[in-house]
Design a protein around this nucleic acid. Sequence first.
DNA 1: TCCATTTGTCAACACCTGTTTACTAAACTT
DNA 2: AAGTTTAGTAAACAGGTGTTGACAAATGGA
Lengths: 220, 220
Amino acid sequence: MPPRHPPSNARPGRSRDERKSRTRRALLDAALEQMRGEHGFSDLSLREVAKSAGVVPAAFYRHFPSMEALGMVLVDESFATLRQTMRNLRTTRLPTKHVVRKSVETFLGYVQEHELHFRFIAKERYGGSTPIRMAIRQEVRLFTSELATDLARTPGTGKVSSGDLRLIAGLIVQTVSLATELVLDTDPGDLDAITQIVDDTDRQLRIVLAGASVWKSEGE
Amino acid sequence: MPPRHPPSNARPGRSRDERKSRTRRALLDAALEQMRGEHGFSDLSLREVAKSAGVVPAAFYRHFPSMEALGMVLVDESFATLRQTMRNLRTTRLPTKHVVRKSVETFLGYVQEHELHFRFIAKERYGGSTPIRMAIRQEVRLFTSELATDLARTPGTGKVSSGDLRLIAGLIVQTVSLATELVLDTDPGDLDAITQIVDDTDRQLRIVLAGASVWKSEGE
DNA sequence: TCCATTTGTCAACACCTGTTTACTAAACTT
DNA sequence: AAGTTTAGTAAACAGGTGTTGACAAATGGA
């Protein structure tokens, strides 16, 4: 009798580990790609992700136990690129004159480079499933703390308590978050719109910093 | 032969219009209710919403042409309660001493009262389908403008351009939005946690307002 | 060289999805 | 009192969903 299964298995790429991590990446990328448009993470279907990664649905389980597990990996990945972004931003020496504007410009540039990761975070930050949302919130908290200690090192923050520094850092994070979401909803070719966003965010941050500089903790 | 359809149609409530708007409400409420937990709007299924409203799936179409149409109604409803909330807040005369804190307290109180509407907006603001997201963004813009003209009427904002007033209003909206989302993720019985949120938000807003008061437009 | 491991395929499963059709009975209209 | 409108039902449809189990073939190690 003829073999019940016709000759299967894709072309024989290099080593086994490499092939495995290749399709794993393909699955992750397929998921990110499908979230480019309307879909949130919970709208994705395992079958479509698998198909778009060039693999049969059942193969998905060789890499992730469930869709949500894949989601958690995306959280980690996305915040890894965010941290890398911040590290780059910190090591780049900027003119002290327009620090704020240049920082915003640079940061939003990174956002456009790593569009899909930032888009993922933006979409799942409030809308996602509880475990994913909590993971994101935790990362944002951490990130805010780091920013607060950065602020503590900058001159003129002597009179501000560390608690208030955290609140100020929160304001900054929040402001930049909105800018990020606006950028993600803007055609990258529309330079005027991007400039407008940078401009507005720069001004908002300077207003916040102005407030911080006249703020004296505790004393009302 | 026996009738192919057993005696149908629910108990004979009042007038026809009233019965109609009753089930219409039931559908809207069912949708909101199902979004209490994990689900975003796009996770809802017409069938489940109908069932939970005590009606057969096909009956849904007597009230809305599609799920998305129902979603748009929810946007309208939700912002109607937001506007009502702001109207109440404006007409309530508050002690000039702790205006900010009292406003925050009151607003977040309304958020808890109309939990489901605010939860809907929070979830769909960034995650939702494009038409819904755009509708929400438009409403937030409008809302920010109103706040900006409010600010223009308060003393000490003489030197600030109307464009910058809008940016300041944006900061305030953004800050209160985050507070709203935190409240929605907090057990309403946990008074300490709520107080903490009110406290932090109050301080953040006062920092922003301090920044605004020393801000002079145009001149760097 | 032979055997074990592993990454993938195929096929079937039980179920849930939105939508359409034909039908009913209560509520309104005349 | 007779006729029309309408909010609702029941049943079927074509198709998509996650998950499972048995099998294949290439890779890696003995």
